[in-house]
Design a protein around this nucleic acid. Structure first.
Lengths: 193, 193
DNA sequence: ATAGAATCGGAGAGCTTTCTCCGTTTGTCG
DNA sequence: CGACAAACGGAGAAAGCTCTCCGATTCTAT
């Protein structure tokens, strides 16, 4: 599930080139301007007529998904790979900081993770759920070994992740020296009484 | 600098009543829907023609400022009142949590504090600067008595405040039990090694 | 080289949003 | 009460957005 429905005939050479260029430009535009950028503006920056871009991606959302979905899937895959790591605390905090690190330099990723309860994906998608579930597994393991406060839920951690994104992005814009994600991670650590 | 230019003649009785009603409805609409709500929608909810609302507030921004400016000024005043409190750590964390507490139930306040580097105020306003300066003073005092990590700047604290807003608002929406602001505050505390 | 299919370009339909304009209605004061 | 300024209402201008449509153009297979 990703490209076209069923077995489509191969694209004409120029069309494939153009499609790649659109994806490239859209990726840059989304990273710098976020989800609010207009479809027309992306077409303009890519140097194509808007009709051409719509030929490749039937809606604005389809284009944005084509650019961003892979990034989120990657986060989920990373979390799964860490699900059996030796040091559960290290796994959780490392993954958490890694997501913040990558998303903080990409406005669209921030917008996507930030906005409201659900990620603005195709209704049928389970990705938002997968993401939350993957985070939840890392969290529980870290709590079992006493690395993270026991009273935090997966929802809490997800909200803190969103908060970190906002904070960290602000800090980057100012050239701040302190990793704000580290500050928040410290807050999540279990106190040693 | 507030109402009208110079000495305006008093409003007609019905006009004053209508103005109050618009402010009241706008306040509720902004709290629940945030800065993205449309001017037309506010007029509709108040039961007025859009022209009537524009008669009282020349632009959308003017209306929003009339509703929200006072709230921010209040935060600044609170910070100033705490600037000589005995327990500097308590003053800083208490103020920080208080701002989060109040802003978390008001979408527009969140939007305003969140969005980018500057608050979307009239260019000439010094309010954004006042807010940052007030926060900075509480922070420095708390750092002097060793209550807060010494490596945090005022900008860091402001960004963390923004992050808290996002996290806390998410938690409220889910009915979360943990005060996420407390988690972040714990992260800002100086470690006692 | 040429026919024919695939692709492109961009005008414009249809929507939302901010804000203006002016005919109509409503308070107020002598 | 009656006149007149003040206030109201909402149509619609202007701008921006998503998305469609179809004539013009470009590739490719023969």
């Amino acid at each position: 599930m990703g490209d076209d429905h069923g077995a489509a005939r191969p694209l004409r050479a120029d069309a494939r080139r153009n499609r790649e260029r659109v994806l490239q430009i859209a990726q840059e535009a989304l990273a710098s301007d976020g989800l609010t950028i207009s479809f027309d503006e992306i077409a303009r920056r890519a140097g194509f007529g808007v009709g051409t871009v719509y030929r490749h991606f039937p809606t604005k959302e389809a284009l944005f998904e084509a650019v961003l979905l892979g990034r989120i899937e990657r986060f989920v895959a990373d979390a799964r790979a860490l699900a059996t790591a030796e040091d559960a605390g290290r796994a959780f905090f490392g993954w958490f900081a890694g997501v913040v690190e990558q998303a903080a330099v990409n406005q669209a990723l921030c917008d996507m993770l930030d906005s409201g309860a659900a990620m603005p994906l195709r209704p049928g998608s389970t990705l938002a759920g997968d993401f939350a579930a993957a985070l939840g597994r890392l969290l529980v393991r870290a709590q079992r070994v006493g690395a993270v406060r026991a009273d935090l839920t997966a929802g809490d951690a997800l909200d803190l992740l969103r908060g970190c994104l906002v904070a960290e992005r602000g800090a980057r814009a100012r050239g701040g020296a302190v990793r704000l994600a580290d500050v928040v991670c410290d807050g999540m650590r279990a106190r040693s009484p």
